[in-house]
Amino acid sequence: MTYKLILNGKTLKGETTTEAVDAATAEKVFKQYANDNGVDGEWTYDDATKTFTVTE
């Protein structure tokens, strides 16, 4: 399945996607991606759209 991440960081905004077997796996990938890019904030997940959002 394809999962999407929306980044609403103070210095980085954008979107990315990943292929993962489940939401938990996608979340690990996205949290590492956000961490690597210096984005740390509040996370939400919408199962209907398979979209994670992180907002600083």
Rank of each mutant, 00 (worst) to 15 (best):
M1V: 14
M1I: 14
M1Y: 15
M1A: 12
M1K: 12
T2S: 09
T2Y: 09
T2H: 08
T2V: 14
T2D: 05
Y3H: 03
Y3A: 01
Y3C: 01
Y3G: 00
Y3F: 14
K4W: 11
K4S: 06
L5E: 00
L5P: 00
L5K: 00
L5M: 05
I6N: 04
I6V: 09
I6H: 05
I6R: 06
I6P: 00
I6A: 04
I6M: 06
I6C: 05
I6S: 04
L7E: 01
L7S: 03
L7P: 01
L7Q: 02
N8Y: 12
N8V: 12
N8L: 14
N8M: 11
N8I: 13
N8E: 08
N8S: 08
N8Q: 09
N8H: 10
G9S: 11
G9Y: 06
G9K: 04
K10M: 12
K10T: 10
K10D: 06
T11Q: 09
T11V: 12
L12C: 12
L12V: 13
L12S: 08
L12G: 08
L12M: 14
L12T: 09
K13R: 11
K13Q: 11
K13F: 10
K13I: 09
K13G: 05
K13T: 09
K13E: 05
K13L: 07
G14Y: 13
G14H: 10
G14D: 09
G14I: 15
G14K: 13
G14V: 15
G14P: 04
E15S: 15
E15P: 04
E15R: 09
E15F: 14
E15L: 10
T16C: 11
T16R: 12
T16E: 06
T16I: 15
T16F: 15
T16G: 04
T16Q: 11
T16K: 11
T17R: 10
T17H: 12
T17K: 08
T17P: 02
T18E: 04
T18C: 13
T18Y: 11
T18I: 15
T18F: 11
E19C: 12
E19G: 05
E19I: 15
A20E: 04
A20H: 03
A20Y: 02
A20V: 05
A20G: 04
A20N: 03
A20R: 03
A20F: 04
V21P: 15
V21G: 09
V21E: 12
D22W: 03
D22A: 04
D22H: 04
D22N: 09
D22Q: 03
A23C: 11
A23V: 12
A23F: 13
A23D: 06
A24V: 11
T25W: 09
T25P: 02
A26R: 00
E27Q: 11
E27N: 05
E27S: 07
E27I: 09
E27V: 06
K28F: 10
K28R: 13
K28G: 07
K28N: 07
K28W: 11
K28V: 10
K28D: 06
V29H: 11
V29M: 09
V29F: 15
V29E: 07
V29P: 01
F30Y: 02
F30M: 03
F30Q: 00
F30K: 00
F30H: 01
F30E: 00
F30W: 02
F30N: 00
F30I: 01
K31P: 00
K31R: 15
K31C: 05
K31H: 08
K31Q: 10
Q32V: 10
Q32G: 06
Q32A: 14
Q32H: 07
Y33I: 07
Y33W: 14
Y33K: 03
A34T: 05
A34S: 05
A34C: 10
A34I: 06
A34P: 00
A34F: 03
N35H: 14
N35R: 15
D36V: 11
D36E: 13
D36A: 13
D36W: 08
D36L: 13
D36M: 13
D36I: 11
N37D: 03
N37T: 07
N37M: 15
G38L: 07
G38R: 07
G38Y: 06
V39C: 05
D40C: 12
D40R: 13
D40P: 04
D40T: 14
G41A: 02
G41C: 02
G41P: 01
G41V: 02
G41E: 01
G41W: 06
G41N: 02
G41K: 01
E42M: 12
E42P: 05
E42F: 12
E42G: 05
E42W: 13
E42D: 12
E42V: 15
W43G: 00
W43Q: 00
W43E: 00
W43P: 01
W43K: 00
W43D: 00
W43Y: 02
T44L: 08
Y45P: 00
Y45A: 01
Y45K: 01
Y45I: 02
D46W: 04
D46H: 07
D46A: 04
D47L: 08
D47Y: 09
D47A: 14
D47F: 10
D47M: 10
A48D: 12
A48W: 07
A48E: 14
A48G: 09
A48Q: 12
A48S: 12
T49F: 05
T49M: 06
T49I: 07
T49W: 04
K50H: 13
K50Y: 11
K50Q: 10
K50F: 11
K50G: 05
K50P: 00
K50W: 06
T51Q: 04
T51W: 02
T51K: 03
T51I: 06
T51L: 05
F52V: 01
F52D: 00
T53H: 06
T53S: 06
V54S: 02
V54D: 01
V54W: 03
V54C: 09
V54I: 10
T55E: 06
T55W: 10
T55Y: 08
T55K: 06
E56N: 05
E56C: 05
E56R: 04
E56F: 10
E56Q: 10
E56W: 13
E56G: 05
E56K: 04
E56Y: 12
